[in-house]
Structures are given as C-alpha cells and as structure tokens.
Amino acid sequence: MVFDSSAFFETLFSSTFLIPALTTLGITFVAMALAIMLGFGGALAALSRYRGLRWLAQGYLGFFRGVPVLVQIVFWYNALPVLTDNAINLPALIAGTIALGLNEGAYMTEIIRSGLISVDPGQREAARALGMTKAKAMRRIVMPQALKVIIPPTGNQFIAMLKTTSLLFAIAVPEIFSTGTNIYSQNFKYFEVLFVVSIWYLALTALLTGLQKLIERRFVIRPRRNTPILAQEHG
C-alpha cells in the first residue's frame, strides 16, 4: 500500500471536519446532559420506597441496556415515523441525540445509584434528626459525598459517548465519522481519511480528559483542612 501523504495532509488541514467536530461535541454534551438527568430520576426511583417506581427503574434499565444502541438509533429515526403515521418524524440529529441520551441514561442510573448508596445512611438519618427535610438532606449531605463516587465514572461515560456518536453515521448525521465516509467514498483513500478521523477523535478525547481532570480536582479530591484560615478568623 502506498500512503498518500498529500491526500492525508490536505484532509487533515482542511476545514471540512470543523463543523462535524463541533456537531460531535454538541451531541455528546446534550446526550450526556439528558442521560444525567434521566440517571438522577432513575437512581431516585430505583432507591424509592415505592415498589412501582422501583419496577419502573428496573424496566428502564433492563430494556435500554439490553437493546443495542444502534438498533435504538435506527428506531428513533426510521421506525418511529412509521409507527406514529408520521406524527413524530424527528430530524436525524435530534432522533440520534435522544436515542444516545436515553440509552446512556440507563448506565447513568446505575452510576448515580451506586454513588447514592455509597454514602453511609447514618449521615442521612443524622441530617433528618437535625430537622433537614428529605430534599435538603439529599442536597446538602448525601449528594456532595455521592458526587465523589459519581464523577470519575461519568467522565469515562462522557468519553465513551463521544466515540459512540460515530454510530449516528447510520442515520446520516453530519458528525466526524460520517463526514469521513463521505470523503473516502469519493476518493477511495480509506486509510488516510480514517487516520484523520482518528486524529479528530483523539483530540476531542484529550480535551474531555483535561476537562475531567479539572472537575475531579475541584470535587473529588478531599479538600485539605484549613486550620490556618480558621485560626486567623477566630484568633
């Protein structure tokens, strides 16, 4: 095989991938935001004292984790319009983002649930005994500690999601990979184009990894005690 370096560099430095890269990032963030919201709801339902809510959470988890995400993507874009007699006919970008978010929500449910149960229930009880409402005990006592458990795997899921967006090429969403397929189907430079596509994904992954480090430094690492500040304040 001959590596066509001029085709490689031309593709690498062309602005063709700029908008698709932003599209990929946008889908990733919106789908993850949806997933995190669903995950909170799912985790609270899974831990609820009401059996009906627990079943609902189990059903959601079982279904969305059990069906391949590609099947779900095609369902939202192609099958839903047929099913609803065109009453619901979503643009590919929206259908794809919803499919990814709903699927990811199942994983986030498990991650957030494990974060919530990692906090010693005695602390929640102490908060309640001090007169905090359930909501306040959750917000002030349980959640800050649960976040330390929730954030690291969520960063992982973010990066996985970034790469999973490439499946949306199946419904022709103009993200990075489908842009690549469009190019190599015309010039047949499969390797050079996929190389460029990979570089874009690596760059975005590096970006998210950096972001993850920043967030973890802020929330996950145990803060050092601030005796000196206190001493200043109170003599």
């Binding site: 005695g122 602390q123 102490a126 908060a127 005994a129 330390k148």
Partner: peptide, 13 residues
C-alpha cells in the same frame, strides 16, 4: 429534638 447516635454519624465531607 437533638439526637446522638451510636455511630456518631458526623457529616464526613
């Protein structure tokens, strides 16, 4: 109504 628990239950964070 104050309550003190066997296992202290201080807020760890």
């Amino acid at each position: 109504i104050g309550m003190v628990f066997q296992r202290f239950n201080l807020f760890a964070h």
